[in-house]
């Protein structure tokens, strides 16, 4: 038989979750291959958080009071959950830029003309970014250990903490995706994807004890989904400084549950919006 024409492949059971998962994995694989061929991007993604760890630890350590303690070892341990959370959220700007880039390449026409599950292009992208984020977290945790970060709980809890971080990062990557779909260039997606992260991460408990904030900011910080995950990780890692007073706000009292709820809520809302946006884009 000629190589051009061929009998149609026996179609697999069409539609449904299975198809959606398979398509997403195909696209995720494509994005991971791309990442492996542009290693400098992965590298820069690693350098930035490492720099934050070093700068915060050595510049601010000792001058920021957490709980009742001014010890730089206590701050170091306190800080690390904040840096981890910041790392997973800042990675979302990259997801947005990648999607904006894809949307303006001819390849998106190929995807849109194929019988693909509707969210697969976006899901594949966010999943690939999640893998990259996980890798970054591993490296970051090793650096943190090197400069003196220690955990004081069992392995299960520590892994649970990292799982919460990844869930938060995954949920936020859909906000990045929505931004990426709403702008015209990858550059705009990067800056648009970063802007909202600064207030989000700084009006929080990530770098300071939120008890020390002015009342107005303190309330924001205590309900901030980002703070919730940070607080949850501090509990799970055993990194709360001696004399730390847990705020009365509900999410701070139940940080693990609150973190899961926040992340799922963000995930569902922004995934829905992003998939809808993707389908209507350029039509």
């Amino acid at each position: 038989m000629s190589a051009v024409t061929r009998t149609a492949p026996a179609p697999r059971p069409a539609g449904g979750i299975g198809k959606s998962v398979r398509d997403s994995l195909v696209i995720a694989r494509r994005n991971l291959i791309r990442m492996s061929r542009i290693p400098e991007m992965v590298l820069f993604g690693l350098i930035q958080p490492v720099m934050f760890v070093v700068l915060f630890t050595y510049v601010f350590g000792g001058s920021i009071q957490v709980g009742g303690s001014l010890s730089s070892q206590d701050y170091r341990e306190f800080l690390m959950a904040g840096i981890f959370a910041q790392t997973v959220t800042f990675a979302t700007a990259g997801a947005g830029a990648g999607i904006a880039d894809d949307m303006h390449k001819g390849l998106i026409d190929r995807f849109r003309s194929l019988p693909m599950a509707r969210g697969a292009v976006l899901t594949g992208r966010t999943v690939a970014d999640l893998v990259q984020t996980a890798l970054t977290l591993v490296v970051l945790a090793l650096v943190a250990l090197l400069i003196g970060w220690r955990t004081h709980e069992n392995v299960g809890k520590i892994l649970a903490g990292f799982a919460l971080l990844l869930l938060l990062g995954y949920a936020f990557s859909w906000i990045g995706a929505l931004i990426g779909l709403s702008v015209r260039t990858p550059e705009a997606a990067t800056s648009g994807g970063l802007i909202w992260l600064f207030p989000l991460t700084f009006i929080s408990n990530a770098f300071v004890d939120s008890n020390n904030l002015p009342t107005f900011f303190r309330h924001i910080a205590e309900w901030n989904p980002f703070s919730t995950t940070v607080q949850a990780c501090r509990e799970l890692f055993g990194n709360l400084p001696p004399g730390f007073k847990t705020p009365d706000a509900w999410p701070m009292q139940h940080p693990v549950l609150a973190s899961v709820l926040w992340s799922i809520l963000i995930l569902v809302v922004f995934r829905t919006l992003a998939v809808r946006k993707y389908r209507s884009a350029a039509a």
């Binding site: 492949p9 179609p11 069409a14 995807f111 194929l114 019988p115």
Partner: peptide, 10 residues
């Protein structure tokens, strides 16, 4: 290969 798989080939 990617295109084939998206067309539901094994």
């Amino acid at each position: 290969q990617m295109v084939g798989q998206l067309y539901e080939m094994r």
